[in-house]
Nucleic acid binder design. Structure first.
Lengths: 157, 157
DNA sequence: AATCATGTAACTTTAAATGATTCATGATCC
DNA sequence: GGATCATGAATCATTTAAAGTTACATGATT
C-alpha cells in the first residue's frame, strides 16, 4: 500500500492553526500541506469528532483549534485519526492450521506488538506544545523571531 | 501498499526446512506456504546470500538449511530479507522548508525510530530454535508427538 | 538426451492512501 | 432573498510496492 502520511500532516496543520488569528479554510490548509481541500477535510474530520478542532461553514468559516496545544498529545491525535495501521509488515494469517506457521506468526506478531506499544508510549509522552517549542527553537536557530511569523489571513493583500 | 508477509513466511519455511530429510523444492515449500514457487525463490534468495540456506539445482535439488536453528536470529533473517520497510506510517517529506512541518516530521520520525529500535531488539533476542520449541509446545498441547510429523518427501506415495 | 530444479526477468494483480471532482447543505454578506 | 463562501459527503482515478503469474535460460542428475 501507499505510505500513510496523515499523522505528520495533521501535526503540521495543528501547528499552523495555533498561529492563526482567524479560521483557516480547507483550501488554505491544503496550500500549507501541499495537498488539496478534500484531503484536508477528510483527514481533519476525526480531529473534529474528538473535539480537538471545530469547523464552521460559510463566510469566514473554516478550521479552528478547540484546545490549547498543551492538552493535545500525539497519542490522542493518532487515536483521532482512527489509529491507522502502523506496520507495513504483516504477521501472517491468524487462523492457520499449521502449527509451524502458528509459531512463526506468533513470534512476528509479538515483536510487532512490543514495537507498537513503544510507539504509542512515545506518542503519549509528547504534546503539541512540545512540537510548538521545537518549532520556536528551529526559528531561533535561524535567527528569526517567531512572533513575526504568526499568520493573519486577513492581511493577505 | 500491500501488506508485507515475507518475514513470517520465511520463518515458517525455515521451520519446515529443519524437519526435512531431503532438500525441499520451491514447489514443495510453495505448497506449504500457500504461494507459488517463484515467490519462494525470490523470498529465499536473500537467506541464501546470507548463508542461512543453500539451494541446488537439478534432480534431488532444492533448499536445505545451512545452519542450526540456534544460530539464526530473527534479526538476521530480517536483515537477509533486505530490512524491509517496517512501517505503513510515514514521517513526511524530509526536506521541507516549513519549520512547522520540520517539527511535525521530526516528532513522528522519532517515535518511529524508537519503535523500530524496539522491534529490532526483540528480533535479535529470538532465535529460530526458540520458534522450534514453541512449535513443539503447540504439538504437545494437542497431544501429538512431533517426531511423528517430520517430513520425508521420499515417502510421499 | 531428457528431465528436474533453480535463477531471473517481465508483466499483471491487489490493497489502501491520496488526488480530484462533484453536488448538497448551511452560513454570511449585500 | 439571492449570491457567495465553506464544509460534508460521495464517487472515481491515481499511485505504490508486495505478491501473483508466466516464461525462459542455466545447470545438475538420471
Amino acid at each position: 500500500m501507499r505510505q500513510d502520511n496523515r499523522m505528520p500532516r495533521v501535526l503540521h496543520a495543528l501547528l499552523h492553526l495555533d498561529q492563526m488569528t482567524d479560521p483557516a479554510t480547507s483550501d488554505l490548509l491544503a496550500g500549507m500541506l501541499n495537498t488539496n481541500a478534500a484531503v484536508v477535510r477528510r483527514t481533519m474530520a476525526g480531529l473534529r469528532d474528538q473535539g480537538f478542532v471545530t469547523s464552521t461553514k460559510g463566510h469566514g468559516g473554516g478550521w479552528v483549534l478547540a484546545k490549547p496545544l498543551s492538552e493535545i498529545t500525539l497519542a490522542g491525535i493518532y487515536d483521532a485519526l482512527g489509529a491507522p495501521k502502523l506496520f507495513a509488515l504483516g504477521c501472517g494469517n491468524e487462523e492457520s492450521h499449521c502449527l509451524m506457521e502458528q509459531a512463526a506468526n506468533a513470534a512476528t506478531a509479538e515483536a510487532l506488538r512490543v514495537a507498537s506499544e513503544t510507539f504509542l508510549s512515545v506518542l503519549s509522552a509528547i504534546t503539541m506544545a512540545d512540537l510548538a517549542r521545537d518549532y520556536e527553537t528551529r526559528m531561533k536557530e535561524l535567527g528569526l523571531n517567531p512572533d513575526d511569523y504568526r499568520f493573519d489571513a486577513s492581511k493577505i493583500p
